[in-house]
């Protein structure tokens, strides 16, 4: 047998140190953190309850109308209506609404946190060179790895599921906000500066509006990634369609897994179409001939 890799340091004690350190954080900050995230939990549950309380046809009409507003196409709107109808027909309406709630809240929070980070990154090359590798790690690290600390901190439940989803889904919106702002026509930013805009005015009157199509693409990707996280998040108590898939695995019920999977695909298509067609129309609107 070939030589094993030499033991340069004692990894056992290193691992114990990391674990102990984290345990200390859990012991000292677990409860305050849980209290701090309570409002978010309430918001998530309220959204979920509200969506499940709404009669199915109201949700169907509202989402179809939203699709039409974004795409200005009857066909796409009808597609949304049909897919939502099928979700209802195959009996997964309630878990689907729970999934939509988780997706909406995690996307909302990812956007609220991600856009300012992206803006900061766009302003400083140092920030960018620090943040890019971190984002790379966040996107390549297997998702299960950050489930562990979240579960330790909060115990299984909706909060760790939500936070893990946000961490997993936030990189695209940060990246594309940064990219979008950096690619805004330099002459336009120069022009608003030349007319005496403050950095804040420059950001809100020129950079963000002009970067909006790119930022929207980021939000779209974030939405899709949040949705792709639901199955894994259900393992730590997120509920919804992911939980149905999980049950399908546990009980070896192909039909349950298939229906829930179909529901996830339909939701993905619906939200992707809404975001994409909205982004495309905005792009056309902003496109300048030069």
């Amino acid at each position: 047998m070939s030589d094993p890799f030499p033991e340069l340091i004692d990894t056992r004690s290193l691992r114990i140190a990391i674990d102990d350190g984290f345990n200390w954080i859990v012991a000292h900050y677990g409860e305050p953190l849980e209290i701090a995230f309570l409002p978010i939990l309430r918001m998530l549950i309220a959204t979920e309850d509200f969506l499940q309380w709404l009669p199915w046809y109201v949700v169907l009409i509202a989402l179809s109308a939203l699709t039409y507003l974004a795409s200005r196409s009857w066909k796409t709107a009808a597609g949304t209506a049909v897919m939502l109808f099928v979700i209802g027909v195959i009996g997964i309406w309630e878990p689907a609404m729970a999934t939509v709630a988780l997706m909406l809240i995690s996307t909302l929070l990812a956007v609220v946190i991600g856009i300012p980070i992206g803006v900061t990154m766009s302003r400083s090359n140092t920030m960018q060179s620090v943040a890019l590798p971190v984002l790379d790690i966040m996107q390549t690290m297997p998702i299960f790895v950050y489930l562990i600390p979240f579960v330790m901190l909060f115990g299984p439940g909706k909060i760790p599921a939500l936070l893990a989803t946000i961490v997993f889904a936030i990189p695209p919106v940060i990246r594309l906000t940064n990219l979008g702002i950096r690619h805004v026509d330099a002459e336009v930013t120069e022009a608003v500066t030349a007319f005496g805009a403050t950095p804040r005015q420059r950001l809100f009157t020129a950079q963000i509006p002009l970067a909006m199509p790119t930022i929207m693409a980021g939000i779209n990707q974030t939405t899709m990634m949040a949705l792709s996280m639901v199955v894994i998040a259900s393992m730590i108590g997120a509920g919804g369609l992911g939980y149905q898939v999980l049950q399908g695995i546990q009980r070896l019920e192909v039909s349950r897994g298939l229906f829930a999977g179909l529901g996830i695909v339909f939701l993905a298509i619906i939200f992707d179409r809404i975001a994409q067609s909205y982004g495309r129309r905005m792009q056309q609107h902003l496109n300048i001939e030069s």
């Binding site: 608003v192 500066t193 030349a194 403050t198 300048i288």
Partner: peptide, 21 residues
Amino acid sequence: LRDFRRHKVSMVFQRFALLPH
């Protein structure tokens, strides 16, 4: 400097640099 740019000097650009929105 901002006041100077707002009131004293203004600029016209080669590729217009208008705000498309």
